[in-house]
Computed example of a mutant assay.
Amino acid sequence: MGKAARDLSARERIKSQREQERKQQQRRRLATVVTVVVVALAVIGGAFWYVQSGKSETLSGQLAPITLQSDGSRVMAKPGVEKPVLDIYEDFQCPACQSFEQTSSATVKNMAAAGQVKVVYHSVNIFTTEPTRGNTIRASAAARCVPDGKQWMAFHDRLFKEQPPETKSGFAIDDLVKWGKEAGVTDPGFESCVRSQKEAPAQAEYNKKLEDTGAFAKGTPTLRLNGKEIDNTISFSPSSLRNAILDAAK
């Protein structure tokens, strides 16, 4: 074989090797892309499952009757429904409580309206420094000024909607009076009760009593089903909360 022929054969081998390397690189790139897509789809699918599992309900209709108790708590239940009992300890200034209201409150209301649970709302005060301390006291004392159950719930929901940042003074007296009237509160003594903070001492006494019993020792919101504290992974998942309440009724 002459020199020219050997050179041609060498160039062909090099060309062939480069072509093989190019195809291998293409296959590796393709495999990488496929892997990334599969992982991305898994992540998206997992996120979709999470959103679906935590999807909030919508209110199905009228609320169950809501009655004021002598200690200031509120009971929401159809006549004759005594169990299971769901106690909700919440602070109007607490961001996590606001999140619970946005996520799971419709489930609680729907189940009470269906006669599946007796719900007891406890307004508490967990903040000890300003401005949050003043905010929570003004809001909870104002809520105690609403005797009608349906109006109280409308005011309750409005307070969470208007919750101020933890770094700013909020729940001003004028706003509380305004929001109450917009929520349909018609009691003639409501405005004077709010402006004088007449119910603040009773609220402080009630809050201390609950603190002393450890009712909400881990913070708010605290949910207790038949006296047993519910984990937040259940409280903030409407479907899980519904199932837990149904199980407690068995």
Rank of each mutant, 00 (worst) to 15 (best):
R22H: 10
L68K: 10
G219Q: 08
K181T: 04
S123N: 11
C94R: 13
T136H: 02
A139N: 08
V185I: 04
V36I: 13
G149R: 14
C97H: 15
N243S: 10
A10R: 15
Y89W: 14
K3N: 07
K23Q: 12
T103E: 11
A114K: 15
L30E: 06
K15L: 12
A42S: 13
V81N: 06
F100P: 02
A244S: 11
D212F: 10
F92E: 03
S140T: 15
A200Q: 07
I137G: 02
R195D: 11
A249D: 00
A42K: 03
E205G: 01
R22E: 09
T67M: 09
S239W: 11
R195L: 14
N135D: 09
K209I: 02
P165A: 05
P147S: 12
N125W: 03
M1T: 02
D157W: 11
L223S: 04
I230K: 13
N125A: 08
R18A: 01
T67W: 04
V43N: 07
G227C: 05
A200I: 05
T35L: 11
G72S: 08
E191D: 09
Q25V: 14
W152Y: 15
T136M: 04
I234R: 03
R138A: 14
S237P: 12
P165L: 04
I173E: 07
Q102Y: 09
G227R: 05
F236V: 13
F100S: 11
K208W: 01
S9G: 05
D247N: 13
E229R: 12
Q98G: 15
F160L: 07
K78T: 10
F100D: 06
E182R: 04
I137K: 00
R138Y: 02
L241T: 05
S169G: 12
S140G: 03
T213E: 14
A154R: 12
S104W: 11
Q197T: 07
E130P: 03
L68V: 08
Q163F: 15
T35I: 09
G2K: 09
R18S: 00
I126A: 03
K209P: 02
W152A: 01
